[in-house]
């Protein structure tokens, strides 16, 4: 099959070559130097920062996305909200990269619309230590695709919450809190956590938005790799291969967690279909 050949040539071979390249010197000798290097100094800092930003945006995006999805998609919501939110989410989740950075500069940059509005209220975020071009600025910007991504991913799980369960619970005298504590959350939790893992992976891999927003200075792993490959720094590309290899490991671990959670979540989905 030509497909298999294509996948081998342009996906498996490049990824495999990086794995080997991560353990080689420029002269082709075996070394664990570069791989060990990713656990210290600025490389380790980059991983920590990348993981932090991905965890925070996954948790916040996941929580907000779920609350919005539940409000807009549950059976009690007006019918029009559903297609509107799913379409908006589809667009926003696919809108990323450099333009997203500029959209937020227009909004929360030093003279952005929201900044001016907040300033008029005497609450200029820049007077309180916030900057769009730092860590929390990037978090706010990433949420623009994380929240809608969560809405799309979690929608089937919300649709799977059966109205009968809620009715049964209230017939048996359960309060709303009890329903959520004993039915809603246990049923949805694997789906919510699994979706959050996907969000983690998406934000861990992101490059363009952070590059455009911080001019490449925020020190995340992808930016560091980019700098090593075509920055003006005279450096060993094999260091970049080791960093890239490390990224694949982190995302592979996340995906393994996702599959475990997804299997648990599918128990409820199966009974619904």
């Amino acid at each position: 099959m030509p497909f298999l050949a294509w996948a081998a040539a342009f996906l498996l071979v490049p990824a495999g070559a990086l794995l080997i390249g991560a353990f080689r010197t420029q002269d082709g000798e075996f070394t664990t130097e570069f791989f060990k290097d990713i656990f210290k100094g600025s490389s380790l800092d980059a991983y920590v920062k990348s993981v932090e930003i991905s965890l925070i945006t996954a948790l916040l995006g996941g929580a907000l996305g779920f609350l919005i999805a539940y409000a807009a998609l549950s059976p009690g919501a007006p019918r029009l909200l559903r297609p509107a939110f799913l379409t908006f989410s589809g667009v926003a989740a696919n809108f990323g990269g450099v333009p997203l950075a500029f959209a937020f500069i227009s909004t929360l940059g030093t003279v952005g619309m929201a900044t001016r509005a907040l300033d008029a209220m005497g609450l200029n975020p820049y007077d309180h230590g916030f900057t769009l071009f730092g860590f929390w600025g990037l978090v706010v910007t990433y949420l623009y695709f994380q929240i809608p991504l969560m809405i799309i991913i979690i929608a089937p799980a919300i649709d799977g919450l059966k109205a009968e369960w809620r009715e049964a619970a209230s017939n048996l005298g359960a309060t709303s809190t009890q329903y959520w504590r004993y039915v809603g959350v246990p049923v949805l939790l694997p789906s919510i956590l699994g979706s959050m893992v996907l969000l983690f992976g998406g934000s861990f891999a992101a490059y363009a938005t952070a590059y455009a927003l911080t001019s490449g200075h925020i020190g995340l792993v992808p930016l560091k790799i980019g700098e090593l490959i075509n920055g003006n720094v005279l450096s060993d590309p094999h260091q970049a291969y080791a960093l890239a290899f490390g990224m694949v490991i982190v995302i592979a671990v996340a995906m393994a967690i996702y599959f475990v959670l997804d299997r648990r979540a599918s128990r409820w989905r199966r009974s619904v279909q």
Binding site: F3, L4, A7, F10, L11, V13, P14, A15, A17, L18, G21, G201, F204, A205, Y207, P222, I225, G226, I229, P237, A240, Y241, A244, M247, V248, I251, A252, M255
Partner: peptide, 22 residues
């Protein structure tokens, strides 16, 4: 599996690999 793999190998890693090999 192969079609889900690009989720695990992000664009930045893919292009570094492609530049390295080709």
């Amino acid at each position: 599996f192969l079609c889900a793999l690009p989720f695990v190998v992000p664009p930045i890693v893919l292009i570094v690999g492609i530049l390295y090999v080709y």
